[in-house]
């Protein structure tokens, strides 16, 4: 096995694993990968967490993480799933938020653990024109992590990544 493999190398390689439902951001930027460890014997253990409990992309992500690590020359890799602590959209990095916006998805507002306040506030800036003259049309969308909004200024619908 390659002696230069470190946790840092792996974190970097995992930037290549994209969220299958939002292919512009990596699972690292989304906060889905929680921990990477490399033992003295070269065994790699990766901890990941699902965004939504019912996320159907979970197994795909798990497989791709494994494949990406094996491509570095690592033979023994385990990808563990944990939901403790639960994933929160606050973990999405600022760069990833900008990528989401450019992809056409309004980023979720940060809520600092007080989700109900944001859910009650119902704010989303239109990813096209940045207007907040918007209205929530459906608290659910084409995937578990998206909601459908309407922008009164663009007069068109857009999606927001759901705050969680």
């Amino acid at each position: 096995m390659n002696q230069t493999i470190t946790a840092d190398t792996i974190w970097q390689a995992l930037q290549n694993v994209k969220d299958p439902e939002i292919p512009v951001v990596s699972v690292v930027e989304m906060g889905i990968v929680r921990a990477v460890s490399v033992s003295d014997e070269g065994v790699v253990v990766i901890k990941m967490t699902p965004t939504f409990s019912g996320c159907p992309a979970l197994h795909v992500i798990q497989r791709e993480i494994e494949a990406q690590v094996k491509a570095l020359g690592v033979n023994l890799v385990t990808v563990e799933t944990t939901f403790n602590p639960p994933w929160t959209s606050d973990w999405i990095t600022d760069e990833a938020r900008e990528k989401l916006r450019q992809f056409g998805l309004a980023p979720p507002p940060k809520h600092g653990g007080n989700l109900i306040s944001v859910a009650a506030l119902d704010v989303a800036a239109c990813p096209r024109c940045n207007s907040t003259n918007t209205i929530l049309k459906n608290g659910f969308g084409p995937t578990l992590c998206r909601m459908i909004w309407y922008c009164h200024d663009c007069q068109d619908a857009f999606e927001q990544f759901k705050p969680l």
């Binding site: 699902p50 939504f52 409990s53 019912g54 996320c55 159907p56 459906n138 608290g139 659910f140 969308g141 084409p142 578990l144 459908i148």
Partner: peptide, 14 residues
């Protein structure tokens, strides 16, 4: 249709 399908998937996750 979309909402109920999503809720079903959430409950399946739970």
């Amino acid at each position: 249709d979309i909402a109920f399908t999503n809720i079903a998937l959430d409950e399946m996750g739970h």
